[in-house]
Write a protein that binds this DNA or RNA. Structure first.
Lengths: 205, 205
DNA sequence: AAATAATAAACCGATTCGGTTTATTGCAGA
DNA sequence: TCTGCAATAAACCGAATCGGTTTATTATTT
């Protein structure tokens, strides 16, 4: 893998994104090295020159994405944020910013999560058991629930907005441009503000 | 294809669902007849005996799903429903009921929509141009907007709930059981009621 | 110019592909 | 029970593709 790391960073990125795209659209077995090479704009042989094997590339990508995602989360998701909507906004913002760097990252991780190929499944379970954790659960902890009006159900609201966030990301899975992401995020933020205005007590607006 | 239609209906269904699953998880080129046969619990040869070719099977499935979906929509989506939430509920209900019959149907159609393989793309465009139509646009037409409170933005609300509906369906794409679907749908309905209670004028509740 | 590293392209045996053919089974009607 | 026929599984086909290696070519360094 030293060979790979010796490459200029923008080329590393091209290869990573090409591989993420192919692994993000296909199951492990059907994601061929040839397709990855084409997507990355290099010759097939180079993949094995850089990574040794398809499997090695695959697990390198898992590690890379995991570290990037959790790294961004730890760096930017301030523990002191107790406002429900701020926290949700922040989480979405991080996801979007990651997708701007690597558009196929989320669909790749999703495929990894659902992968069942015996050649990789057991090792996946080993390396990702710590990583995933329930976003749902830790989202609501430390949140100041007293800001909500009586009758407003934060858990339900969280569920709704989590779905929406999922759907938002999922409705444009192909080559999603940064501008498109911004447009949709702006709409999503409008939704958040809208909800906040309606479900917070007046004094917290 | 007469051979296929002569089969007992439950066997037809098994084959359809197997094929939908495989085509729903893979791009056309990577969805192999062998995998489909395994998923359907028949031998590979039978696929060609029933359908002639993989491509014929593929387009039969497109036609089948299209007819089923639009058929259900026309049958159940009453034109007289002018209530925003009733309409949304009805639409979701139809989608879920279709997914109960054929769990992989939606992901299959989704893949068809994004398919780019030259072997099938042009013919897809021909056969589906009429079918898709903008759900978003026709969702809001004929809806009684006067029921909303001042300050409630129905278009924004529709967007949010459409995303949520997308996310709801998309968060469990694998072998989703009917009970799971019911649980999630119940949650979604609770969200709808919740929104309705908050964004409708009092006299319409 | 010689040596060395990076890369593409040709190549390898093995596997899988879409599709066909053959062998086996189940089930009519006699 | 035998016979014929349709349904099916299993073996098979040449072609393509697979993961991976080797060779040839191009850049780069010395």
């Amino acid at each position: 893998m030293e060979k790979f790391f010796a490459l200029p960073p923008e080329k590393q990125k091209r290869i990573i994104d090409g591989a993420l795209t192919v692994f993000g659209r296909n199951v492990y077995r059907k994601a061929s090295a040839g397709d990855i090479a084409v997507a990355a704009g290099i010759s097939k042989g180079m993949i094995f020159h850089y990574f040794g094997s398809k499997k090695d590339l695959y697990f390198y990508l898992i590690e890379f994405c995991g570290k990037l995602l959790t790294g961004e989360m730890e760096k930017r998701l301030d523990k002191n944020v107790t406002d429900f909507f701020d926290k949700l906004k922040l989480t979405t913002e991080i996801q979007i910013s990651v997708m701007k760097q690597h558009p196929a990252l989320l669909s790749f991780l999703r495929n990894v999560f659902f992968e069942t190929d015996p050649e990789v499944e057991s090792e996946i379970k080993k390396t990702t058991s710590a990583g995933v954790a329930s976003t749902q659960g830790m989202m609501i902890e430390g949140v100041d629930l007293t800001k909500f009006k009586d009758g407003a159900d934060p858990a339900l609201l969280l569920k709704l907005l989590t779905w929406a966030s999922e759907g938002l990301v999922n409705t444009m899975p192909m080559g999603v441009s940064a501008e498109d992401l911004d447009v949709h995020m702006a709409d999503f933020y409008k939704c958040l503000d809208f909800m906040k205005n309606n479900f917070y007590k007046g004094e917290y607006l």
